[in-house]
Simulated scan of single mutants.
Amino acid sequence: MKKVLVFITDGFADWEASYVTAELNKPEAGFQVQTIAIDKNPKVSMGGLTVLPDYDLQDFSLKSEFSMLIIPGGTGWREKKNHQVEKLVSFCFGHNIPVAAICDATTFLGNYGFLDNYKHTGNSLPYLKEGAPNYRGDKEYIDKQSVNDGCLITANGSGALEFSRDILNKLDVLKGKELEEWYDLFKNGFIKK
């Protein structure tokens, strides 16, 4: 079974990865979702859910095989301590492991230069520039709910479904008509005929 890591912080936006993790964790998907954080202390989401991380950054071996790193947004990105994940993100980019970030996690990526050479989105270009003073990716910014470019998927905070659709497509969990029907069901409450 292939592993997908979700990096969590105190105050992570639990809904931003909930659609995709539920699909990935289905037995037939062939993936196992596991959480990673800066330490093994329980993390409390914005919605009040307490999660005990499977790994911390110190005990996680970069030699472990995993298929993707998903990084939800949330209030934790305002705390510098959570930026320790930069080393894991660098490893992913260096080994062609997809990274999927949404909301304020895109701002974190922007501040460390990960967005500069990829088409991407975020909460808005002004928000990204204000929150990430080292960001230099203006020319690659696209004003969309979710953007998929190579090994990078980014989304704004209101694009959880589009973000999930891009991840499911990237990992070959759902494709074509099946993926569009999944998206229509959650976005519109029905499948278009």
Rank of each mutant, 00 (worst) to 15 (best):
M1A: 12
K2M: 15
K2T: 08
L5R: 00
L5Q: 02
V6S: 00
V6R: 01
F7D: 00
F7E: 05
T9S: 11
D10R: 13
G11V: 06
G11F: 05
F12V: 02
W15D: 04
W15L: 15
E16Y: 06
A17I: 14
S18C: 11
Y19G: 01
Y19D: 06
Y19A: 04
A22W: 09
A22L: 14
E23Q: 14
E23W: 06
E23H: 05
L24D: 00
N25F: 07
N25H: 10
N25G: 11
P27H: 08
P27D: 14
E28N: 10
Q32E: 15
V33N: 04
T35H: 03
T35G: 02
A37Q: 06
I38V: 12
D39L: 02
P42K: 07
K43G: 04
S45W: 04
S45F: 01
M46Y: 12
P53N: 04
D54E: 07
D54G: 01
D54L: 05
D56L: 09
D56E: 11
D56S: 12
Q58G: 13
Q58T: 13
Q58N: 14
F60D: 00
S61G: 12
F66Q: 06
M68Y: 00
L69Y: 05
I70Q: 00
P72A: 09
G73N: 09
G74C: 03
W77L: 08
E79H: 11
E79R: 12
K81R: 15
K81Y: 06
K81M: 14
N82V: 00
V85G: 07
E86A: 15
K87D: 07
K87L: 08
S90L: 08
F91E: 15
F91L: 15
F91Q: 13
C92I: 06
H95I: 07
H95D: 04
H95E: 09
I97Y: 05
V99C: 00
V99K: 03
A100T: 10
A101H: 02
D104Q: 15
T107H: 09
F108G: 00
F108T: 01
F108V: 05
F108M: 14
L109Q: 06
G110N: 07
G113T: 06
F114Q: 03
F114H: 01
L115C: 06
D116I: 00
D116T: 02
N117W: 10
Y118I: 03
T121S: 11
N123R: 05
S124V: 07
P126G: 04
K129D: 10
K129G: 12
E130G: 06
A132N: 05
N134Q: 13
N134E: 15
Y135W: 13
D138Q: 09
K139H: 12
E140Y: 13
I142H: 08
I142L: 09
D143C: 13
D143H: 07
D143V: 03
D143I: 07
S146A: 14
V147C: 01
D149S: 05
D149Q: 02
G150R: 13
T154H: 01
T154W: 01
G159T: 02
L161S: 10
L161D: 00
D166I: 02
D166V: 05
L168D: 02
D172R: 09
K175Q: 12
K177N: 15
L179H: 06
E180W: 07
W182H: 11
D184K: 14
D184C: 09
G189K: 08
K193T: 09
